Simulated scan of single mutants.
Amino acid sequence: MTNNTNHKSYQFDSSGALLSTDLPLPRRSGKVRDVYDLGDELLIVSTDRISAFDFILPSGIPDKGRLLTSMSKFWFHLLDVRHHLISTDVPTKQLHAAAPELELSPLEGRVMVTKKAQVVPFECVVRGYLEGSGLREYQASGEICGNKLPPGLSQCDRLPQPIFTPATKAEEGHDENVTIGRMIADLGSERALDLRERSLQIYNAACEHAQSKGILIADTKFEFGMVGDDVTLIDEVLTPDSSRFWAADVYQPGKAQPSFDKQFVREWLSTCGWDKQSDPPELPAEIINKTRDKYREAYERISGDVF
């Protein structure tokens, strides 16, 4: 359904999840975020969209966008790193200058006003544990993105030390894992090695904090951009959409771990009869609610705040 008073600006589903925004500014949209050009700055709106198996689903997860924004804000402020976040306040003046009658309440808690950056065309992925595409690559070759690993590791084992496994950024479909050599070829040695070092430092600092809250960060992906001559951490950071979070007290290597993300969604879609080729089905209310609860638990445990 759509919001009656703002049908041109916001689209909601029957659960109240915000599926899309259409503000009177230049826009581009990703799987979750709508990004608007404010002139000298960007306005990033985190919707409640959720994707799985390379499809954006017709059902949203209420509050997901607000939880992602709150999580990123927490990490940007905690980490000692140059980042793009300016404010999480709704830019009322700029928006009302473009559309005086625009209702702004749907944006509360889900926006980041950021610096503009020239985006580095690589995902900077750090893995501390063996899972996902890294596990599949290790099982096939004994290494991940050129990082040779000891033989005999099992699913979800902790690695001897965190490894940097970059990926190319795909507009559609899956990102492609590549070696640091590919980054060096594209960006130059100094820039590529600097990004690797920054990524590992941020990951290690985040792991130290998360572990103090009973959370393991299995892996995560960072994005960087250039703001002038400065390397800057951009996009979201260390959220359940960009990271695998596991509860330390139930961690058992050798099998898949319960995670604080869209695991319930993926599992239901894998067993509901959907062929993963046609348009995906609506999610049941139980799956929506369980997923929202997991995102909220991740935020509250890591930040120490009540959402």
Rank of each mutant, 00 (worst) to 15 (best):
E131W: 13
D194N: 15
R244D: 03
R28V: 06
P160G: 08
D186S: 13
F164A: 13
S189D: 11
R182D: 15
G304L: 08
K148Q: 09
Q201A: 15
Y251G: 05
P150T: 07
R301L: 15
L187W: 13
S199F: 02
S141C: 13
A117Y: 10
F76T: 14
D194L: 15
C145D: 06
E282C: 12
A98V: 07
H83D: 15
A167T: 11
V90H: 01
L283Q: 04
Y251H: 09
K169N: 11
F260D: 03
E171K: 09
W246Y: 10
P240G: 08
P253M: 07
K221D: 11
E297M: 12
A185I: 04
R66N: 00
L107C: 02
D48M: 02
S15H: 15
D194F: 15
P121W: 05
R198W: 03
P166W: 02
M1W: 12
T239V: 14
R182G: 07
P160F: 06
E41C: 09
V45W: 00
D293C: 07
D54G: 05
L159C: 09
M71N: 00
G65F: 01
S242Q: 11
D229Y: 05
L102A: 08
R244Q: 08
L68A: 01
V90G: 01
P91C: 02
F260C: 09
D54A: 05
I163V: 05
F307Y: 04
N6H: 14
P258V: 12
L102K: 10
T220W: 02
T5W: 10
A285G: 09
P258T: 13
V90D: 00
N289R: 14
V35L: 10
K93C: 08
E300I: 05
T88E: 00
P151L: 06
P281R: 05
K290V: 05
